[in-house]
Nucleic acid binder design. Structure first.
Lengths: 330, 330
DNA sequence: CTGAAAGCGCTTACAG
DNA sequence: CTGAAAGCGCTTACAG
């Protein structure tokens, strides 16, 4: 049977209260008895029951993490960072994958909220007007989406995107194409706007296609549009779409990096393995995860200071083999 | 404030016990009061407190899932399947990523075991002789590793590997190379043995290199060994190693699928996107996850019937562009 | 069918 | 510094 505080109290011939204190608030108990209790507890293999603790304390030591799709390489670094940071602070992570179903997010959050102290929502797909409902549910930090009146950690794509346009311009591209991400995606909207601004600034013509789901297959589908678009370079909503596109272009015997230039976003591990390697905008996912945990835990510790913080992280272009000089004529 | 059973009892002018039953064991309460209680509960927005429920019941409705590395594409399908299956049975999933640190597994399991009803351990790296300790800790199902006296869901690579050797033989390869996975990896051992048997059977010479970590970079490192080995085809421990290998060979201007054939294992999404596309052995990760949940939940429901089941899933070769006829001379 | 009561294992004012 | 007691929100024998 599992060892409880009562067992230890009996073994030490003292009260349950003292045992509890010796273990969780050691300063408030006489050094000698404290030592003895701690030793006995260790010997008996005692481990505190987090459920009972949570009920008494009203705090579980668990945070919930909701992501749209763990199979999308954008998310694992975030998830790992969240786990690592939370772990260091003795809190566990309950992970939920919504499979890109926007409508599931609120429901999952509602269920989770009962068993966690707070939530981290990464790239939520939920419509703008319902986002406030998460805030009612539980303390929450949004990652990769800016939410009015809430803590948000967002990734500012404008630097990376500006660098990308600059890079393409330097290579002689004058007409480029953007493959939109999911309809109503907040980050797609941000990326589009940053791109439009950069293109205006650099006098580059912009053509858009999409929306596309953040999946390789979507990129494959996009390839034909790209080929007939009269553009010489493509920026995709993310690396998956870019990789799918590249695969399809290769099938059509187009040489990426020479006939067409392709830029992805996320700088996922596959960027290095694709052939040619994929020029991509690096997005600091791990940092975002770490910051989100800190923000959430702070928020839990002092409910008063609820000033909604906005943390912005920056992006930068990583140049690889998929971009090259614009073909002279097209 | 959160609504509790007591609140509802007051509102319905009945006892807490009745409210509890109306909600969790409806048959045992008078239809009329039952309806009324359920309606009021809904109106008040009641949601049962899983923590309190867990303490009373001694069961949390949460299972723990421990994986070595969520960024490795082998795991997401398993994780998703586990979540989906568990979700359908009203149980949440607490995920832990050990970052490939074998020594962390037991500790994480010990901590988790206090807040979950059972554990699923995927591809545990823990040494054979300590595996039994998990069983002491909590009900457990092992995935991708066979453990004496425990429930295991394993993936039998021999079909896929035999098919791979058969395929290579048909293409004229007579001398092939295997890139070993991590040292002391159970599945690497199984793959090696299956491969050795198949090679013997088909009269193919086998050269081995490694161990390698299941990462792209390891494959890059392996490339030079492969090039000087005098083999015409390579089977890698997993797709990541295969992809790294291919990338490096491409840099060296070797054409994969013509100069060298490469086969991966896992059939990860990247297999389709690599150039050339990667011939790979499909491993039923999702099925394994689903079965593992079923096994665990059954085990929780009747503690008696603890006959350790072994479920074996099969693999098959998916032929793509990275394999082709052996070069005539080498 | 319903209610009062004990219990799950902990924490923490409140007295002493 | 220590102990008895109440309380966290639920479930479930046990009576009635």
């Amino acid at each position: 049977m599992r060892v409880t505080l009562a067992d230890i109290a009996k073994a030490c011939d003292t009260s349950l209260s003292t045992v509890s204190r010796a273990l969780s608030d050691p300063d408030r108990v006489n050094p000698q008895t404290r030592e003895r209790i701690q030793r006995v507890a260790r010997e008996m293999g005692y481990m505190t029951n987090p459920i009972a603790r949570a009920l008494a304390l009203g705090r579980t030591g668990v945070i919930g993490l909701i992501v749209p799709d763990i199979a999308n390489p954008f998310f694992p670094p975030i998830i790992k960072a969240v786990q690592a940071r939370a772990g260091r602070k003795n809190t566990a992570v309950l992970l939920a994958d919504t499979d890109e179903h926007a409508s599931d997010e609120l429901e999952r959050a509602a269920v989770l909220s009962k068993q966690v102290d707070g939530l981290i929502l990464v790239s939520p797909r939920t419509a703008e007007e319902r986002l406030a409902e998460f805030i009612e549910l539980s303390p929450v930090v949004f990652v990769n989406r800016q939410v009015e009146g809430a803590q948000s950690v967002i990734i500012d794509n404008s630097d990376g995107i500006t660098q990308a346009v600059q890079h393409l311009t330097a290579l002689g591209h004058r007409r480029i194409c953007y493959l939109n991400g999911p309809r109503r995606s907040w980050s797609n909207e941000r990326r589009r706007i940053a791109l439009q601004e950069a293109c205006t600034q650099y006098g580059v013509e912009l053509v858009e296609f999409g929306p596309f789901e953040p999946q390789v297959q979507a990129g494959v589908r996009a390839a034909d549009l790209v080929q007939t678009s009269g553009t010489t370079a493509v920026i995709a909503y993310d690396d998956l779409i870019a990789l799918g596109l590249m695969a399809r272009l290769a099938e059509h015997r187009l040489q990426v990096g020479r006939d067409v230039s392709v830029i992805g976003i996320d700088d996922s591990p596959m960027s290095d393995v694709a052939y040619p390697t994929l020029t991509s905008i690096h997005v600091p996912g791990a940092e975002a995860g770490t910051v989100a945990v800190d923000l959430l835990l702070e928020q839990l510790d002092d409910a008063d200071r609820e000033q909604p913080t906005l943390v912005q992280l920056e992006t930068r272009l990583i140049i690889r083999g998929s971009t090259g000089p614009a073909p002279a004529a097209r």
